[in-house]
Design a protein around this nucleic acid. Structure first.
Lengths: 327, 327
DNA sequence: CTGAAAGCGCTAACAC
DNA sequence: GTGTTAGCGCTTTCAG
């Protein structure tokens, strides 16, 4: 990989000159003769010079790199995509650090390479508690490493409210919530309860572990309950529920409506296609980057609204058969 | 961020000493007194010293970073996951570079930061042709930037053969291939044709554009054909086909079997669940990293077998209703 | 044990 | 226009 020194030698000028030409400084600070400038430029091009940006990082003590820590779950990609693309717009790049091992190793890695910020995608609570408190004294801007910064960009509860409100608006009254034992499920359940009570309806919740057998079992219980609608804490629950209905010849949405949460790719392809509260992963990723970037730039006055999901209406809550059902 | 110099000052020793202690060189090369060693270690810890690895990159002229260029499609995540995790095992990390813009900008970025290797995930042919040939003279190890290195790790045709063979073994004879107009679809079609002919069966292929309306139209044509089985070029085709059957009350697999390709997450949740030729994205990602890593390490003798997919059997090709159908 | 020197690639200030 | 010096953070060698 050729350096400025090499260009200087090849072109028969000093490194100082090369530096000035290549940085465009010959316009204001110094006036270099046109032939010299051309010669340097030509030589640099011919030799295939590419600036070593690592050096800038060393000199300034900081990089333009944001570390993203992730488990790479199935639905992680839109989040990362949002983060990466927003970063690119600000000339930042993303370094991926897998989390399967020790989270402190991952964090250390980030510090060693002097990253400008850190974004953790969907950390478990237990992992957060595992973080060595010493890490935080480096003052690296981060999101997702603590419970407070974790849930800040997407409002689970409020989004879930939208789902319940939607079902009520559709005319359903006997609405049951199908949940599981995770913190997120509980937040979504809270939204459901709140809206039900506000409308004088009695909330009813069935929870299960996230294992296929368990979900099937609970599905059957739910079917026997003969509800008008079932609001699910996530799409996996909803999709398995739909499938069990299919097997038992329970027609959806005729028997009852089913609403998911997450709007995962598979929800476009189930039978019937699944209505779902959209979790805007992509926008979430963008917002996370934006928040970190504002911290990096010391813009403390940044105002933002937590994101709220909207219902994506498909067949499972209405019989509409639009040509765009797969979109 | 504190440096060795700061530690030296604080501990009242020379930087040389600090360097030797921190690199563990005091064991063999020099013998430093225990109290000095302890003092340096303690000071480093107290001040929260973390080595600046960017400097190593500058000095050695190379980093341990692999650049991954990607569009971040829906099914990209397992590939990236495989790549990242394999990289982590070799102390390499992954930088993500989005591709929406100019691919040459992305490549330039990689060179500027002196990445050790480049892996492009699912480049379009047209993007490959857009690459400035000058790039290649930097000799950065890469995979996926040229047609030759692109298809090398996963054998599309052979995997498709497995699918057709599976259907034939199941007793189906009138097997139709549902394809689209992409290069990959064509490779999979080739496998199908080969196996059909080898078994004295007549291949029959219907292709369409990848638009929902088109896929629905072709689905109806296929249903009218009354085949015994339909092998699809990808899961999106298969899932929409299944859904159209559902709507038209054509029972699958009773009316005919449906086999997908790709084994996407949604295939576990369709009704019926979709049998599909598994494309091992995760392993593909790992293998891509391994190939790049071998290039970096100059291990030219590396032998590897292109990956081949296997049929994941679910309900759409058999009526089995195992408890594990959602796995 | 320490200090000095050279080197990685580059910037910036200075005198000539 | 050039050469020198200093500095970013660190390694390595070598004389004291």
């Amino acid at each position: 990989m050729i350096s400025m020194k090499a260009i200087a030698k090849e072109a028969g000028v000093s490194r100082t000159t090369v530096s000035f030409v290549l940085n465009g400084r010959y316009k204001d600070d110094l006036k270099l003769s046109e032939p010299i400038v051309q010669k340097v430029l030509e030589t640099a091009d011919r030799l295939g010079y590419v600036r070593n940006k690592l050096v800038d990082c060393v000199v300034t003590g900081k990089s333009n790199v944001i570390a993203v820590l992730s488990h790479f779950g199935d639905y992680t990609i839109p989040t990362i995509k949002g983060c990466v693309e927003a970063a690119a717009e600000h000339n930042c790049i993303i370094k991926l650090i897998p989390l399967e091992k020790d989270i402190n190793r991952a964090l250390m890695h980030a510090v060693e390479f002097r990253v400008a910020g850190i974004f953790a995608d969907s950390l478990q609570r237990s992992e957060m508690e595992q973080i060595n408190p010493k890490f935080f004294r480096y003052g690296i801007p981060s999101y997702g490493l603590t419970p407070e910064t974790h849930k800040i960009v997407f409002n689970q509860k409020e989004s879930s409210c939208r789902g319940t409100e939607y079902l009520i608006r559709k005319g359903f009254r006997k609405i049951v919530f199908m949940g599981c034992y995770t913190e997120i499920s509980r937040l979504r359940e809270d939204g459901y309860r709140e809206v039900m009570l506000k409308n004088g309806l009695e909330p009813r919740v069935l929870c299960c572990d996230m294992y296929p057998e368990e979900i099937c079992r609970i599905s059957h219980e739910l079917i026997d309950l003969k509800p008008e609608a079932i609001q699910c804490a996530n799409d996996s629950l909803a999709l398995i529920l739909l499938h069990e209905c299919f097997i038992k010849n329970v027609r959806i949405p005729e028997a009852f409506a089913v609403l998911g949460f997450g709007n995962v790719p598979g929800s476009r392809f189930s039978a019937p296609t699944l209505s779902s509260v959209n979790e805007p992963y992509y926008e979430t990723g963008r917002l996370h980057f934006q928040l970190i970037y504002d911290l990096i730039c010391q813009k403390t006055e940044h105002r933002y609204e937590p994101l709220i999901g909207e219902v994506i209406e498909r067949e499972s809550t209405t019989s509409l058969q639009s040509i765009n059902k797969y979109l």
